[in-house]
Amino acid sequence: MAYKHDYDKILTRLTIILSKLNDGEALSVKELAKEFNTSERTIQRDFNERLVSFPIYQEKKKWKMQDGFRVEKTKSLEDEIVLDIIEKITEGIGGKFSTKAHKLLSKIKNEDFNPIYTKLNIEDISDRLADIQVLEGAIKEKREVECWYDDERHPKYKTVLKPLKIVNFEGFWYLIALRGDTLKKYYLKNISTPKILERTFTTDSKIESLLENSISIWFQEDVEPFEVKLYADKAATKYFQRRPLPTQKIESLSEDGTMEFSVKITHEMEILPLVKYWIPHLHILEPEWVKEIMHEDLAIYLTNSSNLLR
């Protein structure tokens, strides 16, 4: 309970500070420390770590929002539609993230009514916003981070990471980072108390290409992509035409509405869960070894189901 109380105080304080900056105020660390009944060191950490990703700067011991970045009401119909969609996406995340996003969007929207509805199963990370601010700052500045991680299989341990991207796959949030020189994926909610270190690091554009071509969090680094060919019946074809997979290439499209297509992946688990989701409308054609894994999984499923029904 103590942790949650501390988090609530931090989130409330950061929200108020950003609101003041957005309203054009110049903020003093000393005055904010008195207002929030905390130390000047804590407020300075807010600016240097938790709010580092925002367009703010310090001038003559006062913190300000950069010109041209203040939030103003939109007058464009196109912008209104985009904001409506963003609002509905944040509602799908839920929790305090949704509440704070709604308050922020209300500052730039001209009306509260939203004619758009979405249903997105996105994990609520509103209890991690303070930590995410630290990670975002480290990613932008290319600085290493020290943090605790609990992978649910081993005792909680402290580690040093080179954070590259915060990503969302299938509704779940992850941190893509280098541990040493090895690319790793960390479940975001299992990361705690991140602290930015002084050490910096360099990266190349390879991670961007990996993410763009990946289907799920199972993508692998330093693995030559291989091609998987699939057959989609009429029901599945419509879906994969409307929402193509990364690297998807149509091999043939029949008059009966069926389709053969291929994708490139780096791990079989990028495609197997998707095929299982689409049973019986999607089938693996090649390579044979991936098809065999699929058949083995189905055989185990059918055997277990039969045993349960006895």
Rank of each mutant, 00 (worst) to 15 (best):
H281Q: 08
E260S: 15
M259P: 15
L285H: 08
L285Y: 06
M259V: 06
L285G: 08
K276I: 12
G257L: 05
E286Q: 13
P280D: 00
S252Q: 15
E292N: 13
E288R: 13
M294S: 10
E268V: 02
M269D: 11
H267C: 03
I293T: 14
V275E: 00
E268A: 02
E260P: 11
W289S: 08
I265T: 04
P287R: 01
E286S: 13
I284H: 03
M259H: 06
H281T: 03
E270M: 07
M269K: 08
V263W: 09
I284S: 03
K291V: 02
K264E: 09
E292G: 12
H267R: 07
H267S: 13
F261H: 02
P273I: 02
V290F: 05
M269W: 15
L253H: 12
I293G: 12
F261E: 00
S262D: 05
P280R: 00
S254F: 14
I284C: 06
E255A: 15
M259L: 06
V275N: 03
K264N: 11
E270R: 12
I279P: 11
P287S: 01
Y277N: 06
L285I: 13
M259Y: 06
P287D: 00
K291M: 07
F261K: 01
E260T: 14
L272T: 03
P287I: 00
P287L: 00
M294A: 08
P273G: 03
V290T: 07
K276M: 14
F261P: 08
Y277L: 12
P273D: 01
